[in-house]
Each structure stands twice: as structure tokens, then as C-alpha cells.
């Protein structure tokens, strides 16, 4: 099974708009996964029905039973995350800082600290307007287990694709180079890098490609907003050539992307010219993956 993952390093390059377009083009042959769980947006264009909703638990959080606490402070002493401050004279757990390592509970002489599983978000399986299913999620505020939630979204998508005999899964990946994007990339058969010809676009492309290289995955690049800076496009192409990355297509800067989005549509449903470029790109990607 093919696993096509779209990432960008830098935000705002058009990654999600392009991925949603690919979903429309791939239609029923795909299962779609939104792994940008931190700020998931693809549902705004694909009309999911949220038909299945499941709580997602991951990691642990410490809790102090105040009734039995003797205020010895041993817990705070061993905590490396400053997660047990003294508030109004008592030791309390700050859930936003607690990493759930459980060290405090192990040293508490009164055994009044317990770890309980942490609800980190919700996982959804939806029917979407392209006639297939999308796996997506909403991460709870300030949660740190987004990597695990990303992995779960992908695993669900994979097993759905197997069950329903689909050719491929299409993944909207996470930004950055850290834990969520590492989870997005693992298992991918082809990576689409969406970039823009800005100094920051290139800078972030270089960093995220370094990560992709570690996974030894084939990749292709889409240069979005390609006409805002021809010099920078030249530099990106140089880099692609040097690193053996396929240039999939170049898309001009066009406010129709935003207009389509405002109508809740993908660009392929709204603009034939831009839509044509993306169609061509998708055909190539399917061949390459």
C-alpha cells in the first residue's frame, strides 16, 4: 500500500490546501489522514460527518491526594519539570508542566500520589465528501503527546485502508521537525514537500529534508507562490537537484486559493487553471509513490 505524506516544515505554504485537493482528486481510492493534529484544518474543506468519535488517552498525570499529604516536599524536590509548585501553602500538580514520569509517586513516603491516564484528545473517523473516509483528531489544549496521537491517526488510517482494499493513504503531515512530524513520516512511501520561494521557506525545506533523508524516503517538491521571487525559486531548484528531489510542480501566487477556502472548497473545485496544475502534480505523485 502506498503511503503519501505531505509536509512543509514552514507553516502557511499551502500544504493543507494542496493535500485537500489531492483528496478530491484521489477520491474513493484513498483513505485520508489529517496528522496535523495541533491545528487540524483539512476538515474545513472535506466536510467530515464525525460519525465515529473516540477518546484518546496517552501518558499519565500525577495527582496528589491532599487529605493524606504531609507537605514534606519530596515530590517537588525530585521533579525535573517544575510541575509541583507550592500554591497557598500546599504542594499541587501543575497539569500543563507534568510529563507523567511518575517519579514523584515513587518517592512519596505517604503514598498519596497516584498517576492516572491522561485524556489527550479525540480521534474521529468520518465519511467525507469525496466518497471515502478520513481519520482525524483534535488534541486537547497544551497536551504533549501529539506524536502518539499522530501515530494513532495513521495506524487507524492504515487499517481502514487494508480493510477497504484502498490503494493508498494520503496524509496531511505536521509542521516542524520534531516529534509529531517524525510520527507523520514513519512508514511513508513517498513524501511531498510543499515550499514557497522565501528565505524562510528554503531554510525550513533544508531542515525538514534532512529529517526525510534519515528515513530514506523518496520525495518530491511543490513550489507554491512560485512567482513572488524568481531568485529564490532558482535557489530552491538548485537545492532540489543537488539532493535528488523531484520537482513536481510550480504553482503561482493566487488569491483564488483563499477564495476557494472561504467557500469551503478545494482549489481543484474552484479554479480550472490552478486545478489543472494540481491534477498534473497528483498524477505524477501517484506514479512516483
Amino acid at each position: 500500500m502506498k503511503e503519501i505524506v505531505v509536509i512543509s516544515g514552514k507553516g502557511g505554504t499551502g500544504k493543507t490546501s494542496i493535500t485537500a485537493s489531492f483528496s478530491v482528486l484521489g477520491g474513493k481510492d484513498l483513505i485520508v489522514a489529517d496528522c496535523d493534529v495541533d491545528a487540524a484544518d483539512m476538515h474545513l474543506l472535506l466536510e467530515p460527518d464525525f460519525s465515529s468519535d473516540e477518546d484518546f488517552y496517552s501518558g499519565e498525570l500525577a495527582e496528589i491526594d491532599q487529605a493524606g499529604c504531609i507537605q514534606c516536599g519530596k515530590c517537588a524536590e525530585v521533579c525535573r519539570f517544575d510541575a509541583i509548585p507550592v500554591v497557598d501553602g500546599t504542594y499541587v500538580v501543575d497539569p500543563l508542566s507534568c510529563e507523567g514520569c511518575g517519579y514523584c509517586a515513587r518517592v512519596c513516603p505517604e503514598n498519596v500520589i497516584t498517576n492516572h491516564v491522561n485524556l489527550v484528545g479525540n480521534l474521529y473517523i468520518s465519511n467525507i465528501k469525496t466518497g471515502t473516509k478520513m481519520v482525524h483528531a483534535k488534541l486537547g489544549i497544551g497536551n504533549e503527546n501529539s506524536g502518539k496521537l499522530v501515530a494513532q491517526v495513521k495506524n487507524e488510517a492504515k487499517s481502514l485502508a487494508e480493510k477497504e482494499n484502498k490503494d493508498a493513504i494520503l496524509v496531511d503531515g505536521s509542521p516542524g521537525v520534531g516529534c509529531p512530524v517524525v510520527s507523520s513520516l514513519s512508514g511513508a512511501t513517498f513524501v511531498v514537500l510543499v515550499t514557497e520561494p522565501t528565505v524562510s521557506g528554503l531554510h525550513d525545506l533544508i531542515r525538514v529534508h534532512e529529517l526525510v533523508k534519515k528515513f530514506k524516503i523518496k520525495s518530491g517538491c511543490i513550489i507554491n507562490k512560485a512567482d513572488i521571487n524568481p531568485d529564490q525559486v532558482g535557489k530552491i531548484k538548485e537545492f532540489l537537484e543537488k539532493e535528488d528531489i523531484i520537482l513536481v510542480t510550480e504553482i503561482p501566487y493566487d488569491e483564488n486559493f483563499t477564495k476557494a477556502m472561504t467557500l469551503g472548497k478545494t482549489i481543484v473545485e474552484h479554479d480550472d487553471k490552478l486545478g489543472g496544475l494540481i491534477k498534473e502534480a497528483w498524477k505524477n505523485i501517484v506514479k512516483l509513490a
Binding site: G11, S146, G176
Partner: peptide
């Protein structure tokens, strides 16, 4: 700050 709503942005803003 970093983008998003999870731990990195909390750390940067708290």
C-alpha cells in the same frame, strides 16, 4: 513562539 497549541507553545508563552 512555535506554532500550534501543544506543549512547545505553552512553554514559550507561560
Amino acid at each position: 513562539s512555535p506554532p500550534g497549541t501543544s506543549c512547545p507553545v505553552i512553554e514559550a508563552t507561560k
